[in-house]
């Protein structure tokens, strides 16, 4: 059965096409202020990569902040469930999964079938979401993509006092004025963020195999800060982590459609 999974995130819209459990194509577009257009574009790119046409799709599942607005979606998948399903699909031993999106952070405890046993969410405050690192990148005048690699070249541990992204911007500017190296500031930013996310994970209980999904998995600085804060050897990250929730939505659509 051919299905599409669409994850309408606050920043990016991600679409995957799957034939049963095989990934055929994927597409991503900036959500911006026109979600319909982002859905259309990411779906078209995914179909293109899969070499399929829209009529070949038997069912669409949607997840993410804007999922209710996707009219053609047959199945609407709760974000936590999509995240859990994806973690279980890639790493069947995983019992804890976390996702840091542009405007939210989440963590869930899952069982061997990928069902959610407990979860925690941070939303409506940028301090615990990807928007924090984005705002700090602007204050540092460093490209977002460079933030992580830069942080990993630092050996320093500078504490950040501000929690709020707005106050942290001023703190970063203060550090720049005090001639603190940008790589050290970048590490401090990732460490501060990781410590907040890890506290959230601790609330539901830390298990050995921790999976991180979502586009933040591509930020090596954040992954490293998380690993240090959790005191683990490794954090499990799937290939193309940004598409994980879309894949979770597609898999659950297969089950429910």
């Amino acid at each position: 059965m051919i299905v599409a999974g669409i994850d309408c995130g606050a920043k990016n819209t991600k679409t995957v096409i799957m034939n049963d459990k095989k990934l055929l194509g994927k597409g991503m577009a900036l959500t911006g202020f026109d979600q319909d257009k982002a859905v259309e574009k990411s779906l078209a790119d995914a179909l293109d990569e899969a070499g399929l046409k829209i009529d070949d799709i038997e069912a669409i599942g949607s997840t993410g902040a804007g999922m209710e607005d996707i009219k053609d979606a047959k199945v609407k998948v709760n974000e936590i469930k999509a995240m859990a399903k994806a973690a279980n699909f890639f790493f069947p031993n995983a019992r804890t999964v976390t996702d840091v999106g542009a405007e939210m952070g989440r963590a869930a405890k899952i069982n061997e079938e990928g069902k959610v046993e407990d979860f925690a969410i941070n939303e409506k405050c940028a301090a615990g979401a990807g928007a924090f690192i984005e705002a700090m990148a602007r204050a540092l005048e460093v490209d977002l993509e460079e933030m992580g690699p830069m942080a990993n070249t630092s050996e320093m541990a500078i504490p950040m006092n501000a929690q709020c992204a707005i106050f942290a911007e001023s703190e970063v500017v203060g550090l720049i004025h005090a001639k603190t190296k940008k790589k050290d500031i970048s590490k401090a930013i990732h460490d501060a963020m990781a410590s907040r996310i890890v506290s959230m994970i601790r609330k539901i209980g830390v298990n050995k195999d921790i999976v991180m999904i979502g586009g933040v998995g591509l930020n090596p600085g954040f992954v490293e800060s998380m690993r240090r804060e959790l005191d683990l050897e490794k954090i499990f990250i799937p290939e193309d982590p940004a598409y994980s929730s879309a894949i979770g939505a597609a898999l659950l659509t297969l089950e429910e459609a």
């Binding site: 501000a162 929690q163 907040r196 959230m200 609330k203």
Partner: peptide, 13 residues
């Protein structure tokens, strides 16, 4: 004082 939501999280549930 500015982070008890996070620090106190493990004691909640």
């Amino acid at each position: 004082r500015k982070k008890i939501k996070y620090t106190c999280a493990p004691c909640k549930g």
